[in-house]
Design a protein around this nucleic acid. Structure first.
Lengths: 164, 164
DNA sequence: TTAAACATGCAACTGAGTTGCATATTGGAG
DNA sequence: CTCCAATATGCAACTCAGTTGCATGTTTAA
């Protein structure tokens, strides 16, 4: 958390966009800022709320996220609800986009990067070629564990999304 | 369909359903058979084609799969396309439903169980409680690797589903 | 300053999965 | 074997994430 001095987010975001050779637009800057100010992966829905003052169209947000991911400025993870979440990894010095497992709370659906863990090595049978890996750890987050009393609808997942 | 044959799949599937204390219906039997005759996880779509002779409604198929998963007769995995695939694990003697990583081909979207691998251990920060884990290995399967010439549209994934 | 390349908003679409409800099956009690 | 309450099924209509096409607005390199 205690990082050395950072330039203003906006300025920094602009620089990062330029360096990644993608066009600098207000929307891209503000989405990147929103993501970088959050330590955890955010869904399209969460992001839309966070940048609501900029009145970004939902389609545009999808496209902005696509561009940022394509440029490796952010990484994306999918929850058991089938929804993608996007996370800035510009600040983490590990140059390995998304190269860590993620934790997803089964009650509140919040997601975290488990940056402390490296992606495990997996043996695949002869003939298979591995390009990348995705690891999702399901469970209960500290917040939900502390407040057992506030009920969340069911187990927080629709029928088919419950894992056996 | 007379009774000479010993232990037909159908008979076996019926037994498994009964033992799992779920009602035995033709649809459930035939879905379980279809899954057990396949070594790899099948999507709702693939399954629907495979049981088309039984004229199962798509909603019913969703419900049947829900029941089978609930009863731990099958396990389910999600691909990067957000689609769930279902796999029989009645035959595998590992009593650990879905307790292995899965491989998904980025060209043809086919999925495999990597039963040779154990689920890796992951350290989570203080306060987090782990209930289960999901691991997906992305890459190219032997079939697609052998037939590079037959092009599949783009990288086989829609924009947002591409991993950075 | 200008124009080509690209970004945005809007409307309409796709496809996986769900829900409500009327009707058909299942399986245990009698 | 028969009956019936519990539950499975089919159908239509829905939700929700994500995508596409197109007309219009913005960026950027020359």
């Amino acid at each position: 958390m205690s990082q050395p001095k950072i330039q203003t987010d906006s300025c920094c975001a602009r620089k990062r966009l330029r360096r990644a050779c993608v066009r600098v637009t207000d929307h891209r800057v503000c989405v990147l800022e929103a993501l970088s100010s959050e330590a955890r992966p955010l869904s399209h829905h969460e992001l839309l709320a966070r940048v609501s003052s900029h009145r970004i169209d939902r389609v545009t947000l999808y496209r902005v996220l696509g561009v940022l991911a394509e440029a490796s400025l952010i990484h994306q993870v999918q929850g058991t609800d089938g929804v993608w979440r996007f996370c800035d990894h510009g600040k983490s010095l590990s140059g390995c986009p998304g190269g860590h497992p993620h934790f997803m709370c089964e009650r509140c659906s919040t997601m975290w990067c488990l940056e402390g863990d490296r992606m495990p090595r997996i043996e695949v049978p002869e003939g298979f070629v591995v390009s990348h890996k995705q690891m999702l750890v399901l469970g209960i987050c500290p917040d939900c564990h502390d407040s057992k009393n506030e009920p969340v609808d069911g187990d927080g997942m629709p029928e088919a999304h419950r894992l056996s």
